[in-house]
């Protein structure tokens, strides 16, 4: 019990600390926030990147979907900070562009669900977005604001890997921000397109950022897409969608890792993982065994804390 109180107090202190840093940060002064780490031995970004590039080791990379959206508004700076404090390896965030060209974090096309405002991001100005508050998980407004991509990457810099979703079509601008913040080497971009198309559209970035192809295993051309990537340019990882856990291509995962690509499968919803999803795991964490048994070494989750606890109990997460 004492330990529990201590941990809770520490996390409260940690959260309180973060805010102080953010308040300092607000004066338009690009001072990097001093992060209060709850983890006594934080893993360096170099180690995180090395682990990402190594498809052979047994350490599993935990990716938090939309940040820690349970305890802070999704896609908020606090949701990212919580992930860093929790020991998450990679945070998945969504980027969109305002009418006047500002890159901001936002999942939906409109701001209606997650903020106090209304309208499409692409038809709104940055000035208007700055006047809005982010909403919490049950729809009530909070003191948190919509972050720019730049603010988000500053928080991530040197601390946590980033999966930048919805960035493919506006990648030139996103890359400028990555260069400015010096975070290019921490960012993973993904897309469900064949190699030839990526080479043509994205070729100039392929050796600058991590690109991860998404392959749906029930796609009749799945095997062909995988082989094409493995022959032309082995990606850092593949994201596989696994609607049924009887699909035979699952048996190739160990081969793919042997060849140098990590294997990413979402635990988010049952159609991603043949029914071995986060909600089942919340009732019985041994559901995550399925990922280990099938040589999956990157998992995107809505239950980062439960997944990390499970992996740590097996010595598969530092």
């Amino acid at each position: 019990m004492k330990k529990y109180i201590f941990i809770t107090t520490m996390s409260l202190l940690g959260l309180a600390g973060c805010r102080e840093n953010k308040v300092q940060e607000q004066g338009n002064d690009p001072v990097e926030p001093q992060v209060v780490q709850s983890d006594a031995n934080p893993v360096s970004i170099d180690e995180l990147i090395a682990n990402l590039e190594d498809s052979h080791n047994d350490q599993v990379i935990v990716v938090a979907h939309r940040g820690d959206w349970r305890n802070a508004p999704e896609n908020s700076l606090q949701a990212i900070q919580n992930c860093i404090d929790m020991g998450v390896d990679m945070v998945e965030i969504d980027v969109r562009q305002t009418k006047d060209g500002q890159l901001v974090l936002m999942h939906d096309v409109t701001v209606d669900r997650t903020t106090t405002g209304t309208g499409k991001v692409s038809e709104l100005t940055w000035e208007y977005l700055q006047s809005l508050q982010l909403r919490d998980g049950i729809g009530h407004s909070t003191p948190h604001k919509i972050p720019t991509l730049e603010e988000a990457l500053e928080v991530c810099k040197g601390k946590i890997l980033v999966n930048l979703d919805k960035s493919y079509d506006i990648f030139d601008k996103c890359y400028e921000v990555m260069e400015k913040t010096g975070t290019q080497n921490q960012v993973v971009i993904k897309g469900g397109i064949p190699y030839s198309q990526v080479k043509e559209e994205f070729g100039s970035y392929l050796d600058k950022v991590f690109f991860m192809p998404i392959v749906r295993l029930n796609d009749p051309k799945a095997k062909q897409h995988i082989d094409e990537y493995l022959e032309q340019a082995i990606p850092v990882a593949f994201e596989f969608t696994v609607p049924q856990d009887t699909i035979s291509l699952i048996g190739d995962f160990d081969d793919i890792r042997e060849k140098g690509a990590s294997v990413w499968v979402n635990s988010l919803w049952p159609q991603h993982n043949g029914g071995n999803d986060d909600e089942k795991a919340a009732l019985d964490p041994s559901v995550y065994e399925w990922f280990l048994e099938n040589n999956i070494d990157m998992i995107q989750t809505d239950r980062p804390q439960i997944l990390i606890d499970f992996l740590r109990s097996k010595n598969l997460h530092r």
């Binding site: 979907h65 939309r66 959206w69 508004p73 999704e74 669900r113 998980g137 988010l268 909600e279 809505d302």
Partner: peptide, 11 residues
Amino acid sequence: KNAAGVRYSGQ
């Protein structure tokens, strides 16, 4: 659904 409208929970 879970909070933040995140898909279905099975509940």
